[in-house]
């Protein structure tokens, strides 16, 4: 449970910058704002749907900055040819949400 988050600090900084550029409201990004960014990856919609399922940990239809980092992490890995897992591996769960 105290394993380091797989999202490295330098990656987190990059993802946080993207998060901020999308105009979060109250520290959250709605699906409407995140969807075009993920679609921009050109990954299949069913894969992106799974990325969302895994990232929106509290299932409120919004992503906070840690959830957004999980989404971006999964998208980048998918673009590198790795498959998106069916459930979120514990090391991918943000430390703030364990």
């Amino acid at each position: 449970a105290d394993a380091p988050w797989v999202v490295k600090p330098e990656e987190k900084m990059k993802f946080d910058a993207i998060f901020e550029s999308l105009g979060p409201v109250g520290g959250m990004l709605s699906g409407d704002k995140v969807k075009p960014v993920l679609l921009n990856s050109k990954l299949p919609v069913d894969i992106l749907g799974r990325v969302w399922e895994l990232s929106d940990l509290d299932r409120d239809g919004m992503l906070d900055r840690d959830e957004f980092s999980v989404a971006m992490f999964l998208v980048y890995r998918a673009l590198e040819g790795e498959s998106v897992p069916m459930s979120l591996p514990p090391p991918l769960v943000p430390p703030s949400k364990r």
């Binding site: 993920l38 749907g49 969302w52 399922e53 929106d56 409120d60 239809g61």
Partner: peptide, 13 residues
């Protein structure tokens, strides 16, 4: 499979 029923919070569904 995604959970069925209710309003989805997933913008890709």
């Amino acid at each position: 499979q995604y959970p069925a029923g209710g309003s989805s919070t997933n913008p890709f569904l």
